[in-house]
Design a binder for these strands. Structure first.
Lengths: 163, 163
DNA sequence: CAGTATCCTGTCCGATACTG
DNA sequence: CAGTATCGGACAGGATACTG
């Protein structure tokens, strides 16, 4: 991509993006969460060219989001499964889905979040784990942490938060 | 980009990605939430080439995430502020930040989520708005909705959810 | 089935120079 | 200050053919 190198990025968002920033990567993760595992399953679900799928799968594996596992000896067969790091990505997908549903679904929802035991649709919101308070501005805001570099520090110190 | 056209994408994640999929877009939104508004503020904070900034700002404005507002008549001066649609993107940024902090911050956090009144760091988790239940697999899962197309429906029906 | 090998195009992005 | 214009490089992504 020829972007600023990982080394100089002190922002966790930028670092995360560095692993899943390509368009297909997030869609592959979405499918992995849906239970897809095999190369041809991804290929069919995504409508992606096989060489691209290979590339993205390799990158995701190298970043530690997926693990390539042999599930059959002969013939040799492999499957791609989410690692703990990959599974931790689920909230990002969930909020992205909620946002997409709210703003870009003129003809209704095509994917919903379901509470399996009751079958009812869920509406995901963010809360603070300890206080239980809903996370909303301006009560909650981002701020530079101990490992922030100069640029990051400046970004969060001067201006007040956007509402 | 030359990807599958918006028309054929029945997935809210793909549709959302279509608006913020480029690498810089999300970083620009991050800065907008930090309170940045002016062209040169973004330019300085991001270290982005001016032509690219122009393009991304135009795209974000066209997608309705930012609004270009004139805040001075002479000299003519403009600022870019988040719309309601853009502000709704915040949870995605927050979860992405949390994920990045957890998995790609070997030397500690550079950005934190702060509860302003107490000054304490928050730990964002997703819960269902109505039931208050934490959103986690396998109790919660994605499923095809009423507006899903054939491909989307198939993706979620056969396989069981990944843990 | 699970990919690899080629070739090609589009465009993201960077660098730089310039303007009202 | 807030951009526009132009040039060039790298690579994401597509299409297709082929292999153990």
């Amino acid at each position: 991509m020829k972007r600023k190198s990982f080394k100089t990025m002190s922002c966790p968002i930028a670092r995360g993006l560095d692993r899943v920033g390509e368009w297909w990567s997030i869609l592959i993760l979405r499918d992995a969460f849906a239970g897809l595992k095999r190369f041809d399953e991804f290929e069919e679900s995504l409508g992606i060219a096989p060489n691209m799928l290979t590339r993205r799968l390799k990158a995701l594996t190298a970043s530690g989001l997926l693990e390539k596992r042999r599930y059959s000896l002969h013939p040799p067969r492999y499957e791609y499964v989410l690692t703990a790091r990959g599974r931790d990505f689920r909230p990002v997908l969930t909020t992205l889905m909620a946002w997409g549903n709210k703003h870009f679904a003129p003809e209704g929802k095509s994917v919903r979040l379901i509470h399996v035991p009751t079958g009812r649709e869920a509406d995901p919101i963010l809360v603070d784990r300890v206080s239980g308070l809903p996370i909303a501005a301006p009560e909650f805001r981002m701020a530079a942490g101990p490992a922030a570099n100069e640029r990051t520090r400046r970004r969060y110190e001067g201006a007040e938060d956007a509402r």
